[in-house]
Design a protein around this nucleic acid. Structure first.
Length: 491
RNA sequence: CGGGAUGUAGCGUAGUCCGGUCAUCGCGCCUGGUUUGGGACCAGGAGGUCGCAAGUUCGAAUCUUGCCAUCCCGACCA
């Protein structure tokens, strides 16, 4: 193999970085910490957007767009919110440049200083709630169910393609409700949507749960999340849904008149998922040959590679291929027929494996004679020659099977790498030797959580939903505990 | 922002100690031909302010100083 990527076992992190670049998903840009998402990577993101957006619309949400800039004063209206984000905000202080007197280029015009500095949004709660104040007067205005697709900026110290970039793309939902119960139900509903998206579209199994107070969103009363396991055993948070209580309503004075005529603060939620999902998708399924994409999100689901010695042969193959592609397209399956003469078949095979195309067909003289085609699946790398008879149905079913198979594989991996541990020494040992998820008892205090984090780098990823009640002792302090929580090292 | 390292063609690199036909090699790219069932081969060709700036010197990719950028390890995070 001339251009092999690093292997996962050699260096997982190198493997990931190389794969993202080589599969043409994204690359680093001239701007520190900001990436360029390339067309192939962006196509996957568009499919993710489409699926999520459909689910949001089905549950009654509408899209809107709020400004990129936020007046600095807004950020400080909600105390814990500003504390959470202040350290990573980009700030706009001027609005004009001018030529440098010494001719060395342009400089910031000191006369163009803004009265009030603007923050580049790290998240939009504050602008949105300041707007909601004007939109909500009566219980009849509720619930208000809004989503926006946007870019946000968080000035991170260390960045990695998709997993943590200074600027990233995401969606953020912001809803307002008349009652606490209704807002909480919305919070749960949106987490369910994220979980369903992760499992049914990305083929990534997730664990749903509550964040501890330490890990909660800045300004939220409760944060729900889904956590996925990557192939190196580390956890990745794939979506969060926050119950904001009346915090932002109070900070921005958003009240409504109830049926009974009283004035009440509204209850809020916010929920988001970002281009980080792209990183999760790569790390959950791919192998040392390249990406493995779930068929539902693959920009190209089937690639057809002709093998020919002459123009006439190519023409004959093209003719045959047409019959297949017409049938596949009718089923909504995306196909690429790569008839370019620039590269040999072997090169193409390797290239489409790198790009994670779920199904590959190869057709040559041999197949023309026999009425067959060679079919290869990306997830297992199995190859076989099959008859053209019923090929469309065969492929349709195979795509479903691949989708299911990579989910099952990821689930089996997670199960195999999740351990119940009752002893702190063993806890540390498993983290260092095996990694993965650990279910252990915790006494419920932030102090204990912090100490475990300092000593092991593992954090409580979540307090899982529906965890069975079980009396136990905190792994660190020995204090009583009612249920196990999920520990892991995380991205 | 602390600790470590690195900047040579689109990418990856040799040369840096010891200054002087040294700008090396591979991939990629262009042209022509032969090829095509797992990353083809031959021939020819294009492409470089050696990160930037100043200094030392007859002479700097190489030595000195300053700056800039990137990567790794920490603190911070979706």
């Amino acid at each position: 193999m001339a251009n092999a990527i690093p292997s996962r076992s050699d260096n997982y992190s190198d493997w990931y970085n190389e794969l993202v670049k080589r599969a043409d998903l994204a690359e680093n840009s001239a701007v520190r910490g900001c990436m360029v998402i390339k067309p192939y990577g962006y196509s996957i993101w568009e499919k993710m957007q489409r699926a999520l957006d459909d689910m949001f619309k089905e549950t009654g949400h509408l899209n809107a767009y709020f400004p990129l800039f936020i007046p600095k004063s807004y950020l400080s209206k909600e105390a814990s919110h500003v504390e959470g984000f202040a350290k990573e905000c980009a700030v706009v202080t001027h609005y004009r440049l001018k030529n440098a007197p010494d001719g060395s280029g342009v400089i910031v015009d000191p006369d163009a200083k803004l009265e009030e500095e603007l923050i580049v949004r790290p998240t939009s709660e504050t602008v949105i709630w300041s707007t909601y104040k004007n939109w909500i007067q009566s219980y009849r205005d509720l619930p208000l169910l809004i989503n926006q697709w946007a870019n946000v900026v968080r000035w991170e110290m260390r960045t990695r393609l998709f997993l943590r970039t200074t600027e990233f793309l995401w969606q953020e939902g912001h809803t307002a409700h008349a009652t606490s119960d209704e807002a909480m139900a919305e919070t749960r509903q949106m987490l369910e949507i994220y979980a369903r998206f992760a499992e049914e579209w990305m083929a990534v199994p997730v664990i749903k749960g509550y964040k501890t107070a330490n890990e909660r969103f800045a300004g939220a009363e409760e944060t729900l999340c889904i956590e996925a396991m990557m192939q190196d055993g580390k956890a990745l948070q794939a979506g969060t849904s926050h119950f904001l209580g009346q915090n932002f309503a109070k900070a921005f004075d958003v009240k409504f008149q109830s049926k009974g005529g009283g004035l009440e603060y509204v209850w809020g939620t916010s929920w988001g998922a970002s281009t980080r999902l792209m990183g999760a998708l790569v790390m959950a399924h791919s192998d040392d040959s390249g990406l493995v994409l779930p068929p539902k999100l693959a920009p190209i689901q089937v690639v057809i590679v002709p093998i020919f010695r002459s123009e006439e042969q190519l023409d004959q193959i093209t003719e045959k291929v047409k019959e297949i592609t017409v049938g596949l397209r009718k089923k909504g399956i995306s196909i690429k027929f790569d008839n370019s003469d620039a590269n040999k078949p072997g090169w193409k095979f390797a290239e489409y494996e790198l790009r994670g195309v779920p199904v590959r067909l190869a057709m040559g003289a041999r197949d023309l004679e026999n009425g067959t085609v060679e079919i290869a699946r990306r997830d297992t790398k199995e190859k076989k020659t099959i008859s053209l008879e019923g090929i469309v149905e065969y492929i349709e079913q195979l795509l479903e099977e691949i989708q299911q198979n990579i989910y099952n594989r990821a689930l089996a991996f997670r199960v195999a790498n999740t351990h119940k541990v009752d002893d702190y020494a063993e806890f540390k040992k498993i983290l260092d030797e095996k990694g993965g998820f650990i279910l252990a008892h915790w006494d419920g205090t932030s102090e204990t959580e912090d100490r475990i984090k300092d000593e092991t780098k593992a954090t409580i990823r979540c307090i899982p939903y529906n965890a069975p009640e079980e009396d136990g002792k905190c792994i660190l302090t020995g204090n009583p505990s009612k249920q196990r929580v999920l520990f892991a090292r995380a991205y």
